[in-house]
């Protein structure tokens, strides 16, 4: 059964149709990769799924329940959590404090701090627990986005370009944690520009261009699709 279903979702910002009737489903335990050029509507799509943006039309179902219009915090407590492409900063709290708050979603405070430290260590921020997120490097802020999601003990995580800007070596820790969680049954939807990473992880792929889904296929098939090649890969195909 599909864990997450997006049904003909459209979103209009004034004159701009940022999403135009996008539909897809993600199976429980799957990893869906979403790719598409800048401005295609991927982040807007995550905003709609996670409850931050109300769609102009269409519906989202999670775990068999219609969730359109439900607030983001409620969705997180139900097990659907997102990261932000624009990394979020915190003026005063430490990385450990922030991830502890995330861990409080499902854990008592006595466990939350230890669990948060454990999650931060697993994503590769074990030495930066007491730093304020504002002072972290962009890469570390991306890892913190992942850690916040993981600490809420979700069923499904929406990751918006968390690997962007990481070197291949630096992607190993996040890839490892994504695989490990996926083995434990966590479903992922990932927007990623780093094609080799998404090819390694995804079980299926959706391509979005100008707010529309233009292709959906297995990762190895998608690169052969001519529309995709035209819209997205262009001259990068052989890179």
């Amino acid at each position: 059964m599909a864990l997450l279903e997006v049904d003909k979702v459209s979103k209009r910002f004034g004159g701009l149709l940022a999403l135009n009737g996008v539909s897809f489903a993600v199976e429980k335990g799957g990893i869906l990769g979403i790719i598409g050029p800048n401005g295609a509507g991927k982040t807007t799509l995550f905003g709609v799924i996670s409850g931050f943006i109300r769609p102009s039309s269409g519906d989202v179902h999670f775990d068999g329940v219609r969730i359109t219009g439900i607030s983001p915090d409620k969705l997180t407590r139900r097990g659907l959590v997102r990261s932000f492409q624009i990394v979020q900063t915190f003026a005063d709290m430490t990385a450990l404090d922030v991830v502890t708050t995330a861990a409080l979603t499902r854990r008592p405070i006595r466990e939350a701090t230890d669990y948060a430290a454990d999650v931060l260590t697993r994503v590769g921020l074990g030495k930066k627990l007491d730093e304020t997120p504002a002072t972290l490097s962009l890469q570390d802020k991306k890892l913190l986005e992942l850690a916040k999601c993981v600490a809420t003990d979700p069923q499904c995580i929406l990751l918006d370009e968390v690997m962007a800007g990481l070197t291949m070596a630096e992607t190993e820790a996040p890839i490892g944690i994504i695989r490990e969680l996926n083995r434990q049954g966590v479903t992922f939807v990932m927007v990623e520009h780093v094609i080799p990473v998404i090819m390694r992880l995804a079980t299926s792929m959706v391509v979005i261009n100008f707010g529309e889904k233009i292709a959906e296929a297995a990762p190895e098939e998608i690169v052969k699709d001519s529309k995709v090649v035209e819209a997205y890969f262009g001259e990068h195909l052989d890179a």
């Binding site: 915090d73 409620k74 959590v81 979020q88 409080l104 979603t105 405070i109 916040k148």
Partner: peptide, 20 residues
Amino acid sequence: YYLRTIRDNEKAAQAIGVNV
């Protein structure tokens, strides 16, 4: 923890499950 997260970043607080 909830209040300090809301103070620092309300949107991010919501995203990690805080009922503002």
